[in-house]
Design a protein around this nucleic acid. Structure first.
Length: 785
DNA sequence: CGTCGCGATGTTTTT
DNA sequence: CATCGCGACG
């Protein structure tokens, strides 16, 4: 009990002590919100509330994991439900599926699946895409779903041209999803919200089941989520929400700021707690944040204050272009690691668009700095992974038409586009799934005999695979790879990608499956595995365990903190993004986005802006972000782009070793190290704590994300080590150089081509020749003196 | 039916 | 600039 209340402020204590009835916690950035929430849960448990009556809803798995870990240290092994809204709905829908016309083995379409489905629906609806692209139609429908608007309702009201078009597709799309026994992300919420509204027994049951509900980041809830939470808090109005209107950045996804602004009206008996004291940032940083956010009208006035020491002035820096920006930030980080014994994980770089990582990656590599990109072209998007997952989806749900379309001719088995479209047409006309149509291939007019027999052959393969449907995942996957001769197919079609070998990814997936089997010994169903996979977000791959510099979008940064933060591209059309300037409301959201970024920083913060920036090919001049004028510029440290040596302060300058300077000859001095498979030595305790809901593959996926596919050893601890690592510059690999490879023995470099990270050496060994991408393989390729 | 190459096209944020 | 989609060829 003591541990629960120890060291809390009055406001925090009030929140933690609260048990019954509605509560609103307005928590400014860095105000110890997670602490309050987790201690509050512990306090409830200590008061004898059964853990299973408590549900904590978050927006990301990452947030849920964090919460679980921290609750676990206070109250170990309590089955408090913690997870995302989507997972919450997915699990209830599993059971309630028949009530909405689905079976409990329904599939969750990811974004690209829905996109496919959407195209098909557009075609079936006979809608022209000249006035609205499939993406726009999808976005419009998604928006409608988030507002709990059904196809019928939409027909009645739709007025704007784009909505009118979407309204014609919507019912068709929805019907096709039903036929495919599938839902998209929005449906997870929509189905549950509607069930709760239309079915009093279900509502009452779930309300009683989840007596205590906590919602994190409440400012990001959309109408569907609002309705769900509301419906679950009627008989048992023990709803505690936390949030900060100033950190609402998901309006584009349907989040409604009024949910939090009006919470006190919705629940008149509410207890409101304001957490305004900031434990994270320096006063300098807070003042900048505060000045900025004051320019918003849609907010609740909040006074942020802190006892932290003043710290350094916030830097506003101008660079000539994106390359200089990236390069100097990398240099600065390198110098800080060297001279001030900072660690790579102390740094983060935020940006508005994912596209901005390119130059950063290059610069960080040039400086041998380890980094991780949160997002990237993730593991689950890779072709080979999508193929295998599609097979699994189809095995789990024979109606999964998107999956069928993907795999019916993978590996190629003579079923072409024409056959597929005939199948689809037949399926549409009969209102049946495509696999069912495939079983009746001989009934389809105009289908060539040969095609029909190919299709029949596929059906036989499918039935064959089906035998293993309930086997352990590992067996199923191996069997699948074997029976489809997938490896041979990969080898045949592999486009010598220099990054990672596709087969290694397949192994990675199998590893994930093994892990899942291990963690779900009894209920390890295919269902659960696929659900897990569908609901992992890119941001969940973020691991602060690794000592790496973090690169992420401003959106992904929410909820995190770093000692030193760089926000790049604070430029007009970039930070208020060009597509978010049409309305005042959107601009305010962009301002909040910058606010979120600023308030992630604990000690040092730099905002930067380029004079010109290369975008889609050509360089164009840049106008600084109008937000910059809203900052307390006089107390900030403004640095114009200038010759390199001037911008370090003295202290740093001395510690900046010559040898750290930029590579002498061209920029080939790119080094990376290939680690042993990461995850092996992961802290096992941590794993156990989070293992219940954590996607086992996520960790490995994160690893393969790093450095564009190569895996960085994470144990990069000290600056000394960093220095040691760059002792073999790539320039020693020249034509004629004698090398020794761990596997192939001694050989001679016969050719070197490409530059930078793409530099490739062709090496002649005794019997064979191999090419190595030096940036990745140098570790294995030892120079013989 | 499959593959290759060209041209066009469109670029935010994510469960 | 990079990916995607489509068209023409083998």
């Amino acid at each position: 009990m003591d541990a629960i209340f120890e060291g809390l402020t009055d406001a925090q204590t009030k929140a933690v002590r609260h048990v019954d009835g509605p509560m609103l916690i307005l928590a400014g950035p860095g105000s110890g919100k997670t602490r309050v929430v987790t201690h509050r849960i512990a306090n409830m448990l200590a008061h004898g509330i059964p853990a299973w009556q408590i549900a904590a809803l978050t927006f990301t798995n990452k947030a849920a994991d964090e919460m679980r870990t921290r609750v676990d240290t206070l109250a170990p092994n309590q089955p408090v439900w913690m997870g995302t809204f989507h997972r919450f709905c997915a699990q209830h829908l599993r059971r309630l599926a028949p009530m909405v016309g689905l079976s409990e083995n329904y599939s969750i379409y990811d974004t690209s699946d829905s996109k496919q489905a959407m195209k098909r629906a557009i075609e079936a609806a006979g809608v022209s895409t000249t006035h609205a692209s499939p993406d726009q139609i999808a976005a419009t429908i998604s928006h409608a779903k988030n507002r709990l608007t059904s196809p019928e309702m939409m027909e009645g009201q739709a007025l704007r041209p784009r909505e009118a078009i979407a309204a014609r597709v919507y019912p068709v799309y929805q019907q096709q999803l039903l036929t495919a026994n599938a839902v998209d992300f929005d449906d997870l919420l929509l189905h549950i919200a509607r069930l709760l509204r239309e079915n009093p027994e279900v509502r009452a049951e779930l309300d009683a089941r989840h007596k205590y509900i906590l919602v994190d980041e409440y400012q990001d809830t959309n109408l569907a989520q609002y309705a769900i939470v509301r419906a679950l808090s009627i008989d048992c109005p023990n709803l505690a929400v936390t949030g900060d209107p100033d950190q609402s950045i998901y309006g584009w996804r349907g989040a409604d700021l009024n949910n939090i602004l009006d919470f006190e009206k919705d629940y008149p008996s509410v207890t409101t707690v304001r957490l305004e004291k900031n434990y994270r940032s320096t006063p300098n940083i807070l003042r900048v944040a505060d000045q900025l956010i004051r320019h918003n009208t849609q907010r609740k006035q909040k006074d942020l204050f802190t006892d932290n020491p003043e710290g350094d002035a916030v830097v506003l820096r101008f660079y000539d272009d994106g390359y200089q920006e990236a390069d100097e930030i990398a240099s600065e980080i390198a110098a800080a690691i060297m001279g001030q014994s900072m660690r790579p994980s102390d740094f983060a770089v935020f940006y508005r668009m994912n596209a901005m990582t390119r130059s950063l990656e290059h610069a960080l590599r040039s400086h041998s700095l380890p980094y991780q990109i949160v997002n990237g072209l993730e593991f689950y998007q890779r072709r080979e992974i999508k193929d295998l997952l599609a097979y699994l989806h189809l095995i789990n749900n024979p109606s999964h038409d998107v999956a069928l379309t993907r795999v019916i001719n993978v590996p190629t088995r003579g079923i072409g586009a024409k056959t597929i479209s005939r199948l689809r047409a037949f399926a549409d006309s009969e209102g049946i799934p495509m696999l069912a149509a495939a079983r009746r291939a001989n009934e389809i007019d105009g289908l060539a005999k040969r095609s029909a027999s190919m299709v029949a052959k596929f059906v036989r393969l499918y039935d064959h695979l089906q035998i293993k449907a309930t086997a352990p995942l590992e067996d199923l996957l191996r069997y699948l790879v074997e029976e489809t001769a997938y490896e041979a197919y990969l080898e045949k079609t592999a486009v010598e990608q220099q990054d990672t070998s596709p087969m290694a990814n397949v192994d990675e997936l199998i590893t994930a499956a093994v892990e899942f089997d291990r963690q779900h010994p009894e209920d390890g169903s295919l269902d659960a595995f696929l659900e897990q996979v569908a609901l992992v977000a890119d941001t969940d791959a973020f691991e602060n365990e690794n000592d790496r510099i973090t690169l992420m979008t401003l959106h992904a940064a929410k909820g995190l903190e770093f000692p030193r933060v760089f926000i790049i591209g604070v430029e007009d059309d970039m930070l208020p993004h060009s597509r978010s300037k049409s309305s005042q409301l959107e601009v305010e959201e962009e301002r909040r986005l910058l606010f979120v970024g600023i308030t992630r920083a604990k000690e040092q913060l730099q905002l930067s802006c380029c004079k010109r920036r290369a975008m889609r090919g050509d360089v164009r001049p840049v106008i600084p972000s109008p937000f910059l004028n809203e900052l307390p510029l006089t107390e900030m440290s403004r640095v114009e782009s200038s010759p390199k040596q001037d911008w370090f302060d003295d202290e740093m300058d001395q510690s900046y070793p010559d040898s750290w300077d930029l590579p002498d000859e061209n920029d080939s001095q790119v080094r990376e190290t290939i680690g042993q498979s990461s995850g092996v030595d992961e802290d096992s305790e941590y794993n156990q704590e989070v293992e219940r809901d954590q996607m086992p593959g996520a960790k490995s996926a994160a690893a393969s994300n790093v450095g564009s596919g190569s895996r960085l050893q994470s144990g990069l601890q000290t600056a000394a080590e960093l220095m040691a690592r760059k002792s073999t510059p790539l320039s020693v690999y020249r034509e004629g150089t004698q090398v020794r490879h761990v596997e192939y023995g001694e050989g001679t470099i016969v050719d070197v081509s490409g530059r930078g990270p793409k530099r490739i050496a062709r090496v002649k060994f005794e019997e064979e020749e191999h090419s190595f991408r030096l940036a990745f393989a140098a570790e294995d390729l030892e120079v013989v003196d």
